[in-house]
Design a protein around this nucleic acid. Structure first.
Length: 816
DNA sequence: TACGGGCGGGG
DNA sequence: GTGTACGCCCGTA
């Protein structure tokens, strides 16, 4: 009998139990099999039944199918809570995971059965919750060593939690590949070779592999004979490094599937799992998740876009953009054409430098966000692999399931398809967003409620279990499904969801207090981040159609309370001689007018004295200048655009919200122009300079001084060419390309330039490589790219579209 | 106003 | 043995 402590990293359900890959305290790998938890579920019975007889009946269930036996090991009555009620439920324990559905199918037809629950919780989740095992936190296994030809240290036994002590010294390996050849398409990986791969470890390890020789290669570059050798070398490099975490950027959707496809071509088994198993891909997800046993594969993109996305306020999650935002670092400027060309001309070092820089950014971003992910692992109890790809729904759900156990609460079933469809049709009134008066403002302050939705849920005890129509906390009037105005009530008897939200808010307050004294403490920052993330997500979870604890009435009550509170602040601010400029959900921007900063503080104080429970209005920041623009609409009517503005604070930091500049369908030129204009106006407050700047750009376009590279537009074909009825420019260019012998099919991204010529826009679309310098339609770029990007900004400054074009040659106003 | 196509990330 | 499921925007009928 051995007793070994270890940090659990990766979990795989097996037939009769679970396999856990982890790290011993001495830093060596360990694999543990634990078969001690038997699968189970619950039956809620009709009232007035003889439970003893029913239990007897259940324990006798035995099913034979294709000479496979499915049996019940035990059944027992337990007192549980279920959605606010205390009930007796029958716990049914079965012999193996596959028995759950078989036994359930028998029990559901028994007359005593009212409802069967907790059959839809996967074994590994069940195991983690039941055993209170937190991934990454220290555990021990008591059991015996087992021989396994693929694994050095393998045990079978019973695992239990030891402490909160968390694994904090992972070996991390980041990687990235570069491929040569045609444009992006679904079968690119079938045709185009990998030309380089780069890897960087968090221990200083650095390596690049390529199969074209070049002079004066660096010591970290390995040159191999062929692509097949590159893949073998890559596999060896990963195995030798033996990472705990293998990290990529969109590696679920690009790098790993690409490598696997190329490996298949050369009949190489890319088996980099710690038990020498191959990579498996999930089914059903839009981007398949790539997993390997024992090595936690982290694709940074999903976490950044799904979890951090909303608060990062980026309009693209490209590596370059994200690196810029998180690290203030960027990629080497090299596009797809440049890479191809460099490869053809033997400028291999340039590609390797580019490749390595991408890996460096990937590793750095990983190190930056890993504490946040690890904190969510700790709070929610989900493994790191899951956290890195998690949605808010899953995050909240697993957290609630974990907490439910402490309160002896049964977990409601996931909704069935029909119910999901029904829920999807339900809508309700959301947050209050004030329409701003378009304009350039000076001297602003932004105020916002601390954890507005969570604090409302907590202070009004809002949950599906406390909802009723008679007594308790009364919501503002809400329009219900039939269009009637009703108020919902929430009982004051505590329910676990509002209680755990209260916990989260209070815990976060403690962390924030500690942070005030220790502002640079990254651990505390991550803690605060994790608590905030889960706390804020619970409101959305109530409204999420797939939720187990779904409650539309709850969600609509929360937004109704919130609207009442924020409107109250706006009203009181106006009374205190502030000018409310804009408001969205839980925040309000005020122009100070004659007020001073200290008046803002006393206004805050006054509001906070009147707020109930955990609710609090806070100072977000003071801003020197801000621009709010009009939205597209009928001429003559100016309506302020919601969620589209830009501010600058005293430190010169710009906050650009809602401007559309980083999307692929805008040319580089248009994007850069918009950002520069905002900068000139906010930083320097010089509208003539901004005007001159745009006129200069327009002049450059007219004078054919703009490089073709800055004018390229991108579109991807989603159907096969012959299925298109509407012929947009991207379809037209794809047809041209097909004629030229390009392989065009669904998934191909085409790049094109609108060139000078006659007819519709689609007739003028040309391949970038066909365009000589200056072969572009300046009128198209002026009217469809530059002007739409900046006209709303200039409107605010008192200019018209025409003003942008004065001094510009040969242009009739009529064309606008 | 409802519907369907396109996009994201990667080269 | 895997475990689901995207969500939003824009142009067009």
């Amino acid at each position: 009998m051995e007793n070994v402590k270890f940090y659990p990293l990766d979990f795989v359900a097996i037939k009769n139990g679970i396999k856990i890959f982890g790290k011993k305290e001495d830093g060596k790998d360990i694999c543990v099999i634990d078969k001690s938890l038997k699968p189970y579920f619950y039956v809620i019975t009709e009232k007035e039944i003889n439970s003893k007889k029913f239990i007897d009946k259940i324990t006798k269930i035995e099913i034979e199918d294709n000479s496979e036996y499915y049996t019940v090991l035990d059944a027992l009555e337990e007192k549980k809570n279920f959605l606010g009620k205390s009930i007796n439920a029958i716990k049914v324990i079965v012999d193996k995971q596959s028995s759950i559905s078989e036994v359930k199918n028998v029990i559901k037809n028994l007359p005593e059965t009212k409802q069967i629950i907790e059959t839809d919780i996967s074994y590994s989740k069940r195991y983690l919750i039941e055993r209170e095992i937190i991934p990454l936190a220290l555990c021990k296994v008591e059991g015996d060593l087992v021989e396994d030809e693929n694994i050095e240290f393998n045990m079978e036994g019973v695992v239990s939690k030891v402490s909160e002590d968390s694994f904090d010294s992972p070996k991390i390996l980041a990687f990235d590949i570069e491929a040569y050849g045609t444009l992006m398409s679904e079968d690119k990986s079938k045709k185009d070779p990998i030309i380089t791969v780069a890897l960087i470890g968090n221990n200083g390890f650095k390596k690049a592999i390529t199969w074209k020789n070049y002079k004066n290669k660096e010591s970290y570059v390995e040159i191999v004979e062929s692509e097949a050798h590159l893949i073998e070398a890559l596999k060896q490099t990963i195995k030798e490094f033996n990472p705990d975490y293998l990290v990529g950027y969109f590696s679920d959707g690009f790098d790993l599937p690409y490598i696997i496809e190329r490996a298949k071509k050369y009949k190489i088994e890319f088996n980099i799992g710690k038990d020498n198993s191959s990579i498996s891909f999930s089914r059903g997800t839009r981007v398949k998740h790539a997993r390997m046993s024992g090595v936690v594969h982290l694709d940074l993109l999903p976490f950044i876009s799904k979890i951090m996305g909303p608060s990062l306020q980026l309009d693209s999650f490209s590596l370059d953009n994200v690196a810029q935002a998180i690290l203030n670092d960027s990629k080497i400027a090299m596009n797809f054409y440049d890479i191809n060309k460099a490869w053809e001309e033997g400028r291999i070092k340039e590609i390797i430098d580019y490749n390595l820089q991408d890996v460096k950014l990937t590793l750095k971003i990983c190190e930056k966000i890993l504490p946040n992910m690890a904190e969510l692992v700790k709070i929610s109890g989900l493994p790191l692999y899951d956290i890195s790809r998690v949605t808010y729904g899953k995050l909240v759900e697993h957290y609630l399931m974990k907490r439910a156990r402490e309160f002896n609460e049964l977990v409601p079933n996931k909704p069935e398809k029909g119910l999901v469809a029904l829920r999807r049709t339900h809508t309700y009134q959301g947050a209050f967003v004030m329409e701003p008066n378009p304009g350039l403002y000076e001297n602003l302050v932004m105020l916002d409620f601390r954890s507005l939705y969570p604090s409302i849920i907590n202070s009004k005890n809002i949950s599906p279990a406390t909802l009723n129509f008679e007594s308790g906390y009364k919501s503002p009037e809400i329009e219900d499904e039939e269009g009637k105005n009703v108020s919902y009530y929430y009982e004051k008897k505590p329910h676990f969801i509002p209680l755990v939200i209260g916990d989260i808010i209070k815990k976060r307050e403690v962390v924030k207090e500690a942070l005030k004294k220790d502002k640079k403490n990254e651990v505390l920052k991550a803690k605060s981040y994790g608590l905030k993330t889960i706390g804020n997500a619970i409101y959305g979870y109530y409204a999420f159609f797939g939720a187990r604890w779904y409650c539309r009435e709850c969600a609509s009550s929360i937004t109704a309370f919130a609207r009442e509170y924020i409107k109250d602040v706006i009203q009181k601010a106006a009374k205190a001689k502030f000018n409310p400029i804009y408001s969205d959900t839980d925040s309000v921007a005020l122009s100070l007018e004659k007020n001073k900063e200290k008046d803002v503080l006393s206004f805050l104080n006054k509001i906070n004295k009147e707020l109930p429970g955990l609710m609090e209005l806070e100072l977000e920041d003071f801003y020197v200048r801000g621009i709010f623009v009009a939205k597209k609409g009928e001429e003559g009517k100016t309506m302020g655009a919601k969620k589209k503005y830009a501010l600058i604070n005293k430190d010169g930091d710009m906050k650009v919200i809602g401007f559309e500049t980083v999307r692929k369908d805008w040319s580089q030129l248009a994007r850069e122009t918009q950002l520069k204009v905002l900068e000139i106006i906010l930083k320097e407050n010089k509208k003539e300079k901004a005007l001159k700047f745009v006129r200069k750009i327009i002049g450059d376009l007219r004078d054919k001084k703009v490089k073709i590279n800055d004018l390229i537009l991108h579109n991807q074909l989603k159907m096969n060419l012959e299925d298109y009825r509407a012929i947009g420019p991207h379809v037209a260019i794809a047809r041209k390309m097909k004629e030229k012998g390009y392989d065009i099919k669904a998934g191909t991204t085409v790049a094109f330039v609108i060139s000078k010529g006659k007819g519709m826009i689609r007739d003028k679309a040309k391949l970038p490589e066909e365009c000589e310098d200056g072969d572009y339609d300046e009128d198209y770029y002026i009217n469809n790219q530059i002007v739409p990007c900046v006209e709303r900004i200039f409107e605010v400054l008192g200019y018209k579209k025409e003003d942008l074009l004065t001094n510009a040659k040969q242009k009739s106003l009529g064309e606008f």
